[in-house]
């Protein structure tokens, strides 16, 4: 069935969703080519997140210097209509002829009359919003684990910057960092959980997943790389049926990769636990695994 006549008609107007730096530039470019633009943003004002940045790549220009002229230009342009505090609810139609349903949330201020003088802000009696401390999540940690954690945390009581050593000890004790333990540590150290998680995910030592009894660390240093560490790794992966970073179902082996364990003379090298195995080759892998399976 051919499309109806009315749908063929192209309308000379566009809607740009999102009034960040990209949206503003798009709106300006479109308006400059003579097209009517509706610029829509869900926030009370356009501008997006760019203002939060300091410098921009690759010219090192400051972010405000880039966006401020565009803000002004968008605001003044005859052909750009800014719709803020609004969300698109539905879109109908085809390219060139869309009908949108837009939900505009109330601003409680008449935008037509407002001059932006700021007097209302200064005079509003309720600018002190009372912050209600949210109820703390209950930490689901066993007594035994809590006891272990208490003793570890106590050990580093007097250390400045104790988080890293505490997590190192915890990682050694549990072989990984269980979630309840992380929550408990954050609570005890009076730190946001996000800070603890940032450290726990940044450093290579830490694992958030349970790891196997034998941790195989394959060295991927330069010397090992040129001597075929990749082949050894794929042999391990093939033999154990897991990828690097994963643990076998029987919790026996975990494959990890490290950037140089400092045994470059014996490349390619891998470590199982603390034991170093040098001059490895693909063909030596099955036997090596077998030795540790028995152990």
């Amino acid at each position: 069935m051919p499309p109806k006549k009315t749908e063929d008609k192209k309308i000379g107007a566009t809607l740009v969703v999102g009034g960040g730096i990209g949206g503003m530039q798009a709106a300006l470019d479109l308006a400059a080519s003579g097209i009517k633009v509706y610029l829509l943003d869900s926030k009370p004002s356009i501008g997006g997140v760019m203002a939060q940045l300091d410098k921009t790549f690759p010219t090192n220009d400051c972010a405000m210097c880039t966006m401020a002229p565009r803000l002004v230009e968008v605001g003044r342009h005859k052909d750009i209509e800014v719709i803020t505090l609004a969300d698109v609810e539905s879109i109908k139609g085809t390219a060139g002829n869309f009908t949108l349903k837009i939900h505009k949330r109330p601003r409680f201020v008449d935008e037509e009359k407002c001059t932006g003088c700021g007097l209302c802000v200064a005079n509003c009696p309720v600018h002190n919003i009372i912050y209600v401390t949210p109820e703390k999540d209950k930490i689901d940690i066993s007594d035994e684990h809590a006891k272990i954690m208490n003793s570890i945390i106590k050990e580093y009581e007097d250390v400045e910057g104790p988080l890293v050593p505490i997590l190192q000890r915890t990682n050694e004790t549990f072989n990984y960092l269980p979630e309840p333990v992380l929550r408990y540590t954050a609570d005890k150290l009076n730190m946001p959980l996000s800070v603890v998680c940032r450290i726990a995910t940044f450093y290579k030592t830490f694992s958030l997943e349970p790891r196997g009894k034998h941790i195989i660390s394959v060295c991927l240093g330069t010397a090992c790389h040129v001597k075929g560490a990749g082949r050894v790794t794929s042999a391990l992966e093939g033999e154990l049926g897991i990828k690097r970073g994963e643990t076998t179902k029987d919790m026996l082996f975990t494959i990890e990769t490290v950037r140089c364990i400092g045994c470059c003379g014996l490349a390619p090298v891998l470590k199982v636990g603390e034991n170093v195995h040098g001059l490895m080759s693909k063909t030596m892998v099955p036997e090596l695994l077998h030795t540790y399976e028995k152990a």
Partner: peptide, 24 residues
């Protein structure tokens, strides 16, 4: 003795310092 936790960038002196301070 401060045991590092494994991050290449911490060999850079200012990153190393912030790592000892327990920050990132």
């Amino acid at each position: 003795v401060h045991k590092a936790a494994g991050a290449f960038v911490c060999g850079e002196e200012t990153a190393l310092i912030s790592s000892i301070e327990g920050k990132l």
